[in-house]
């Protein structure tokens, strides 16, 4: 009998793996429509999963926080939260797709378009790539200048209509709409205009540099556009 239970579980496991994507979507839908709060507690129910690369969440002081924009620029900038709030604000509501498979639909973000920040600093000739740093001291990211100037890359200060939470990258993070989540660097503190792409933290661990959703990292998710 014990053997039959074990074999039965193995069989159910195989069925679960085969039908998992469909089941997973179903559970996500049920939770979202009946008890959205559960999504923060239960696995694979449409909530965010938080990946940090250092101990805990990095701390900052809203009064002294500055976003440095430097490298191949006409004017080096050091933007406070008030400076960012004074720049033209853009809202974007799009899905957030993680390279590990989870996706959160229709997340409302707002902040300043990266290209508006770059325009304010003035990109010098030869500035062909962007190197982003996080004040957690470890997390870095990259974009080509062309990718960074697209109208769907946000220096985000708000998420779900409220200031970004610590675990989501407070006070300022990137949101790169068409790419997997790891490109949307959290706890953003530096934007450096450079000549060549410098692969970021996750890219050095083997993830793709050009991380378009659906056509990179060996995945075929629906693109986020």
């Amino acid at each position: 009998m014990g053997r039959r239970i074990v074999l039965g579980m193995l069989g159910l496991g195989v069925v679960g793996v085969a039908a998992g994507r469909w089941l997973s979507d179903g559970v996500t839908e049920v939770v979202a429509s009946t008890a959205p709060g559960l999504a923060n507690v239960l696995p694979a129910t449409g909530g965010f999963r938080i990946y940090t690369v250092t101990s805990g969440y990095p701390e900052y002081d809203p009064a002294t926080y500055r976003l440095a924009v430097n490298g191949l620029v006409r004017d080096e900038l050091s933007l406070s939260l008030a400076d960012l709030a004074a720049l033209p604000q853009t809202g974007i509501t799009k899905d957030f797709q993680c390279v590990t498979g989870w996706r959160v639909a229709n997340v409302p973000w707002s902040g300043v378009l990266l290209r508006d920040v770059l325009t304010a600093a003035g990109v010098e000739p030869g500035g062909a790539a962007l190197h982003f740093t996080s004040f957690d001291g470890v997390y870095t990211e990259s974009l080509t200048m062309e990718q960074g100037m697209a109208p769907d890359v946000l220096v985000a200060t708000s998420m779900f209509g409220a200031p970004i939470q610590e675990k989501h990258g407070a006070p300022v993070r990137l949101y790169v709409v068409p790419m997997y989540g790891y490109k949307s660097l959290k706890w953003l503190s530096g934007i450096e205009v450079v000549r060549d792409v410098i692969p970021g933290y996750w890219e050095q661990l083997g993830y793709d540099v050009d991380a378009y959703v659906g056509t990179s990292n060996g995945r075929s998710d629906d693109p986020v556009v």
Binding site: G16, V17, A18, A19, G20, R21, L23, S24, T100, G101
Partner: peptide, 11 residues
């Protein structure tokens, strides 16, 4: 493939 990855994670 994605579907099996998602399935394995789900289970």
């Amino acid at each position: 493939p994605d579907a099996l990855r998602t399935g394995a994670t789900f289970v």
